[in-house]
């Protein structure tokens, strides 16, 4: 395979690192959640793209359809997306509570308050 052959993996890796970096480097709790989402999405892209069969269509049982993409990863990712949505919702809910309790959503400021306590 030539250069663009595995470009989907490169996209996955780039997205993953971007997400991971945001989670680690940013102090803003919302941005961390955003980073986490990007990180998760990179894995979803990874799953979906690996299921693609060259020249294949959607897996529909019909006459004339011989090659089709592997449907299983798609289904798995539907589940994973649900999980990711739940995680995001919970994280955001926690951020709201943290904001109420601390008056800020900046990690360093929260830590400052915790050290004082």
């Amino acid at each position: 395979m030539e250069f663009p052959g595995l470009y989907n993996y490169w996209i996955t890796i780039v997205l993953m690192m971007v997400g991971f970096y945001i989670v680690i480097a940013h102090d803003n709790l919302i941005k961390k959640v955003v980073g986490l989402n990007i990180f998760q999405v990179s894995v979803f892209v990874f799953y979906i793209s690996m299921a693609k069969v060259q020249g294949g269509t959607a897996p529909i049982l019909d006459a004339g359809i011989e090659t089709y993409s592997n449907p299983l990863p798609h289904v798995l990712i539907l589940t994973a997306i649900v999980v990711a949505v739940a995680t995001t919702a919970l994280a955001l809910a926690l951020v709201v509570r943290i904001r109420n309790a601390y008056g800020t959503i900046e990690d360093d400021e929260i830590e400052g308050q915790e050290d004082d306590a």
């Binding site: 709790l29 995680t87 926690l94 951020v95 509570r97 943290i98 601390y102 929260i110 915790e114």
Partner: peptide
Amino acid sequence: RALTAAYRYLI
């Protein structure tokens, strides 16, 4: 602090 603990655990 339970909230921040939960948040960090979540991440």
